[in-house]
């Protein structure tokens, strides 16, 4: 279900809000949480019912691993915590790899070794990168001992909470779960709700009126590349730049707006990125939750800038490489990621 769809605006959202606030009003806090998780799964399964198996399996498996880590490993051996963590990270990456990169991998094998292995044409479950990265961060935080005491219900709601499920921002457990635990936030707060409506409407405007309008120019331009003049090509590329930004940031605004309607504050994902004065500044403003994830869970654990100049460069390159892979199963993205660090 998309935020800018009729079914979301006229049916799903009013139902989700009414049910959630009614249950909380009746002081059925747990039931309200379960209700919201159920609605989130409906939201996700609306794209494709089979996706539900993937997200439910992923949530259950990751929660189980985090419990094992929190309990001090298995067989009474503390060292196994690290093994479980590494296994969890690899398992999550393997799932993403399968859905996102398996065909890409086969295409490359076929082209390098001149083979004809059949492509699987796997349908990519929406938002799989978002909820997988979110859960990887949770496993790492569990290893650091920061996630004790969360129930399965709280965890499932944290991962599946529909506003941030398919397009981010990538939120951390300590930002969301405490907000759901705060029962003062379980009631209708007019200030937050009005703020939510305003932000949602802004996002909807950015997506439908601005991004989609630039989209017409982009579709036209990409469809007539051989005959474009230099000026037209420049305009098309600028249109694409703006379409991309307004589409993504509009969607994040809508997510943030819906979050506010539920009294849940989500991380700001964009901060006027095209006003940036350098590449470094740009990454501090564009898809900020991904930048934070990469910094916190890749760059700093690799040593950040504390292990000399060469290691710093290698670490930055690793971050951009992962970022490139995140953005798409395509060599152009990997090339982009592995060269962007240079700037």
């Amino acid at each position: 279900m998309l935020f800018n769809s009729y079914v979301f605006i006229f049916l799903f959202l009013p139902l989700a809000l009414a049910g959630y606030y009614l249950l909380n009003y009746l002081k059925k806090y747990r039931a309200a949480g379960v209700f919201l998780t159920g609605m989130s799964l409906w939201f996700y399964g609306y794209f494709n019912k089979s996706y539900l198996f993937i997200i439910c399996g992923s949530i259950a498996a990751n929660y189980l691993l985090s419990v094992l880590i929190n309990r001090g490993g298995v067989w009474g051996k503390k060292e196994t915590r690290k093994i479980i963590l590494v296994f969890g990270i690899f398992a999550n990456i393997a799932v993403i790899f399968y859905f996102k990169y398996f065909d890409f991998f086969i295409e490359n094998v076929n082209s390098v070794f001149e083979k004809t292995f059949e492509l699987k044409n796997i349908a990519l479950p929406l938002g799989i990168s978002f909820f997988t990265f979110q859960q990887v961060s949770y496993l790492v935080d569990s290893y650091r001992g920061e996630t004790k005491g969360y129930t399965f219900g709280e965890y499932a709601l944290f991962v599946s909470f529909f506003p941030q499920l398919v397009a981010g921002p990538i939120v951390l457990h300590n930002e969301v779960i405490p907000q759901f635990r705060n029962y003062n936030k379980r009631f209708f707060i007019p200030e937050n709700f009005s703020k939510g409506m305003y932000i949602f409407a802004t996002g909807l405007f950015k997506k439908i009126i601005i991004a989609d309008t630039f989209g017409f120019a982009v579709t036209y331009g990409f469809g007539t590349i051989p005959t474009l003049s230099s000026l037209e090509a420049l305009l098309v590329s600028l249109s694409y730049t703006f379409q991309l930004y307004f589409d993504f940031s509009g969607y994040c605004d809508m997510a943030s707006g819906v979050g506010y309607m539920f009294n849940i504050e989500l991380l700001q994902n964009f901060n006027s990125p095209y006003k940036a004065t350098s590449i470094t500044d740009f990454w501090g403003r564009w898809h900020m939750s991904l930048t934070r994830f990469l910094r916190t869970y890749i760059y700093i654990p690799l040593g950040g800038n504390r292990k000399g100049k060469i290691r710093t460069y290698i670490n930055i390159m690793a971050v951009y490489l992962v970022s490139g892979i995140w953005h798409g199963a395509n060599w152009t993205f990997i090339l982009w990621g592995s060269t962007a660090w240079f700037f």
């Binding site: 007019p190 200030e191 709700f193 009005s194 409506m197």
Partner: peptide
């Protein structure tokens, strides 16, 4: 009264 102000805004907007 602040809350009322927001409520009125919400109702008017809707």
């Amino acid at each position: 009264s602040e809350a009322l102000k927001y409520k009125i805004w919400i109702i008017n907007t809707l």
